[in-house]
Amino acid sequence: MAPTSYDLQRTHNKSGRNSGATGSSRKKSTRERGWGLGLNCSAEFCRGVVAECLGTFFFMIVACVADLQWDSSVRVDVLRLSFTLGLAVVTLVHCFEHISGAHLNPAVTASLMIIRQTGIVKGLFFIAAQFLGASVAVLLLKGFLPTSILGNMGYTVVSPQITAHQAMGLEFLMSFLFVFTFVSSMEATRFAAKLVALPIGLAYLLNTLWGYEFTGASMNPARTISAAVVQSNTNDWPVILEVYLAGPVAGGLVAALIYKFIFDPTFVPGSMRSLRSTSNFDSEEDSMIAMQPVSPHRKEDRGTRGMV
């Protein structure tokens, strides 16, 4: 039976609705892609930026208060300071890991950017938020606390018994260990979600114990540079940039690259993957997965953690 004009009109309306739905979904997918270059302007992205700012703010509050000079004749208790900062890292990573990854450190963010676990623009926003949070913390405490007990306000200094180059090497080593622990702990197959914060905090505690007397064990450019800017320590900028910026960032980048391309099983070449699959520590299921070729879809799914 030939279609009537009513049927033709109904078909036209239906196709129009379908095309409208397709257009709306296309617009939605366009909005979800964000501004490009790794930036997704969404509620999740904004929550992540706020989390990095707030987390670094509270870390800097703890670092400054733990370093107050209540008695000028008494040296800083390195043991107390180490445990305070280590526990602060454990607490803050536990609070913000599921929101932003709890980087709280420009060296960590730069390291995750280089191994493509964090988008470029997202990482830049995170770094800006970290510096902002640290600076606001120092300004707040500087305005609230008496001048007589302010001390260094989180500003770490190099020991006069070593050179700036030696201090940079030590910050490189401390940041290497810290970032290597951070990246390896974030591997979901190794730790339960609630235990991720513990090894990261212990790494920070360990580095502070052995490195504080040399450089103050900063491992965090936002910590030292923000305190230097607020306190106008303009005479030490060459040392600050070499020791507390280049050292931690370089150490973190090397640590992330070594872990990703040598120790991460998802990036091991095929010949080495088959050797790893025969290890006694690998389960039969892991061995079968390791020997299967990885499709582009699986790579994309595996790399979504921390990506925008």
Rank of each mutant, 00 (worst) to 15 (best):
Gln292Arg: 13
Ser274Ala: 11
Ser271Met: 09
Thr266Cys: 07
Gln292Ser: 12
His297Leu: 13
Arg298Trp: 15
Ser279Leu: 14
Ser277Arg: 14
Arg298Leu: 15
Pro265Asn: 03
Glu285Cys: 00
Glu300Asp: 06
Arg276Met: 13
Pro296Gly: 02
Arg273Tyr: 06
Ile262His: 00
Pro269Cys: 12
Ser295Pro: 02
Arg273His: 07
Ile289Gln: 07
Pro296Asn: 06
Val294Ala: 05
Glu285His: 01
Arg273Cys: 10
Pro293Phe: 08
Pro293Asp: 10
Gly303Tyr: 05
Thr266Met: 10
Phe263Val: 04
Val268Ala: 15
Ile262Lys: 00
Pro296His: 03
Val268Ser: 11
Gly270Ala: 12
Ser283Glu: 00
Leu275Pro: 06
Phe281Asn: 07
Ser295Thr: 14
Arg273Gln: 13
Phe267Tyr: 08
His297Ile: 12
Pro265Cys: 02
Asp282Lys: 05
Glu300Trp: 08
Ser279Tyr: 08
Gly303Ser: 05
Ser277Val: 11
Lys299Val: 15
Ser274Lys: 11
Ile289Phe: 04
Met291Pro: 05
Thr266Tyr: 05
Val294Met: 12
Val268His: 05
Asp301Tyr: 14
Glu284Ala: 04
Ser279Thr: 10
Val294Leu: 10
Pro293Ile: 08
Pro296Tyr: 03
Met272Leu: 15
Glu285Gly: 00
His297Val: 14
Ser271Thr: 10
Glu300Met: 10
Arg298Cys: 08
Pro265Tyr: 03
